[in-house]
Simulated assay, not measured.
Amino acid sequence: MMQSPYEIIDERFRWLINPTARIEKLYDGCRWAEGPAYFAAGKYLLWSDIPNSRMLRYDENDGHVSVFRVPSHHSNGNAVDLTGRLISCEHHTRRVTRTNYDGSITILATHHEGKRLNSPNDVVVKSDGSIWFTDPTYGIDSDYEGGRAESEIGASHVYRIDPLSGEVTRVADDFVKPNGLAFSPDETKLYISDTGRTHGDHHPAHIRVFDVSSESRLRDGRVFAECTSGIFDGFRIDERGRIWSSAQDGVHCIETDGTLIGKIRVPETVANVCFGGLHRNRLYICGTTSLYSVYLFDNGTRTI
Rank of each mutant, 00 (worst) to 15 (best):
M2H: 08
M2R: 08
I9G: 01
E11R: 07
W15D: 00
T20K: 04
T20L: 15
R22V: 00
I23V: 15
E24L: 13
E24R: 05
K25H: 04
Y27D: 04
S48C: 13
S48A: 14
I50S: 05
I50A: 04
P51K: 13
R54A: 03
M55A: 05
D59P: 00
N61G: 09
D62C: 11
R69L: 15
R69F: 08
S72I: 13
H73R: 09
H73M: 14
H74P: 02
G77T: 02
N78M: 15
N78K: 06
V80I: 14
V80S: 03
D81L: 15
L82N: 11
T83I: 15
T83N: 08
G84H: 10
G84L: 11
L86Q: 08
T93C: 07
R94V: 01
R95F: 09
V96M: 06
V96A: 01
V96D: 09
T97G: 01
N100Y: 02
S104G: 08
I107A: 07
H111S: 01
H112F: 13
E113P: 00
E113W: 10
G114S: 06
R116C: 09
N118F: 14
P120K: 12
V123I: 13
V125T: 03
G129P: 10
W132L: 11
W132Q: 07
T137A: 12
G139M: 10
I140W: 12
I140G: 00
D143V: 01
E145M: 11
G147C: 12
G147L: 15
G147I: 09
S151P: 09
G154D: 15
S156L: 01
V158E: 10
I161C: 06
G166D: 09
G166V: 14
E167A: 15
T169Y: 10
D174W: 05
D174Y: 05
F183P: 02
D186F: 05
Y191P: 01
H199W: 08
H202F: 13
H203K: 12
P204M: 10
A205T: 01
A205G: 02
R208P: 04
V212I: 12
V212E: 11
S214K: 11
L218K: 06
R222I: 02
R222M: 13
F224W: 08
S229T: 12
G230N: 03
F232Q: 07
F232H: 06
F235C: 03
R236T: 05
D238P: 04
E239T: 04
E239F: 10
R242W: 05
I243D: 04
W244Y: 12
W244F: 13
S245T: 05
S245A: 15
S246D: 02
Q248N: 08
V251S: 04
V251G: 00
C253D: 02
I254P: 00
I254H: 01
E255M: 03
D257I: 03
G258V: 08
T259I: 01
G262E: 07
I264K: 00
R265T: 06
V266A: 01
V270Q: 06
A271Y: 11
A271M: 09
G276T: 01
L278C: 03
R280A: 14
R282Q: 13
R282V: 10
I285E: 06
I285S: 05
I285N: 06
I285F: 10
S290Y: 04
Y292L: 08
V294H: 07
F297V: 00
D298Y: 09
T301G: 08
T301R: 06
